[in-house]
């Protein structure tokens, strides 16, 4: 190791850090859009929804169907992903999770039901569109801004994430339904006593959360490829973001998404400079997660209240 150190320092000095930061925000933005839905539905329904992965997958394929297979152009994919996943989320809640919860299902029951639902959707997508990967026929134009290489897809992604964060912030703080979501999340009995229609609030949250997952899936699909495993592949980091941010906390998730994105990308740089496979990038993200949880068991959420 001693001889390698100067080499490592040389290596690190050669890296375009502006690009690494930019890549981190690209990674972070996808995690953010997908984690918001997961964290909000957890806040209200109090169980980890593993089918969230497939909400992403379905959104990506719905977008692919409209944009590529029907040839309506890429912007139509956003509408399709948002609506298809949103409806799927709302239906899942109404048809599966709400009835289960009413019959006294525990956390484990709900979790297993969610895993089962995820399998059903994943295989449904696999049978409908095939198991081999597909790719959007759109070619993204890439260009340099200073020393950072960007593509219009990545800029759209960052714009979408910022817009989503802004809108969600306004929704949660300024509107009646948003206040009801926050109220129900922190104290359901009190919210109920204050006349909040908990069922409606929860349904809206599932709808919006799943719709956002669909958008995240679409971006992931457009940036890489479509496959029935698309959502499952990024569910783990999405959970990491949710937990690091403090489960149920929207603002915690924003910070956590960028921390995990940064950890993964800086991780790649360090791993490479030591000649280690970049497979371990997620391990670095999880290391940060574990350390944070030891120091702050509630995640980052407390810092944002």
């Amino acid at each position: 190791m001693g001889e390698r150190l100067p080499l490592v320092i040389y290596f690190l000095s050669m890296v375009n850090w502006a690009q690494v930061l930019f890549n981190s925000s690209v990674t972070g933005c996808i995690y953010l859009i997908s984690a918001v839905g997961l964290t909000l539905t957890y806040g209200l329904s109090k169980f980890p929804n593993f089918a969230h992965a497939e909400f992403m997958t379905l959104g990506a394929y719905a977008g692919y169907f409209l944009a590529d297979q029907l040839g309506l152009g890429f912007p139509s994919a956003f509408v399709a992903a948002f609506i298809a996943s949103g409806i799927l989320g709302a239906l899942s809640y109404r048809g599966i999770f709400q009835p289960l919860a009413k019959r006294g299902a525990s956390l484990i029951h709900l979790m297993v039901a969610a895993i089962g639902l995820g399998f059903v959707i994943r295989h449904f997508v696999g049978e409908l569109w095939g198991w081999s990967p597909r790719s959007f026929k759109v070619t993204w134009s890439a260009f340099d801004i200073g020393i950072v290489r960007v593509s219009d897809l990545w800029l759209w992604l960052i714009f979408a994430a910022l817009a989503m964060a802004g809108l969600m912030h306004l929704l949660l703080t300024k509107t009646k339904i948003g206040k009801a979501i926050r109220g129900t999340s922190s104290n359901p009995e009190l919210a109920l006593a204050s006349g909040v229609n908990i069922n409606r609030v929860t349904l809206v949250t599932w709808l919006v959360g799943a719709a956002l997952a669909g958008i995240a899936g679409l971006f992931r699909g457009a940036g890489t490829r479509l496959s029935p495993m698309l959502g499952w592949d990024i569910l783990l980091p999405t959970f990491a973001v949710t937990i690091l941010g403090g489960i149920g906390s929207f603002y915690g998730a924003i910070a956590a998404a960028f921390i995990i994105g940064l950890a993964e990308n800086i991780g790649v740089v360090f791993l490479t400079s030591f000649g280690i496979s970049t497979e371990y990038r997620m391990a670095i993200a999880f290391l940060i997660l574990i350390i944070t949880l030891i120091l702050r068991p509630g995640g980052l959420a407390r810092m944002f209240r």
Partner: peptide, 8 residues
């Protein structure tokens, strides 16, 4: 997703 690897 290999952006950072390719960036290096």
């Amino acid at each position: 997703d290999y952006l950072t690897e390719l960036g290096i």
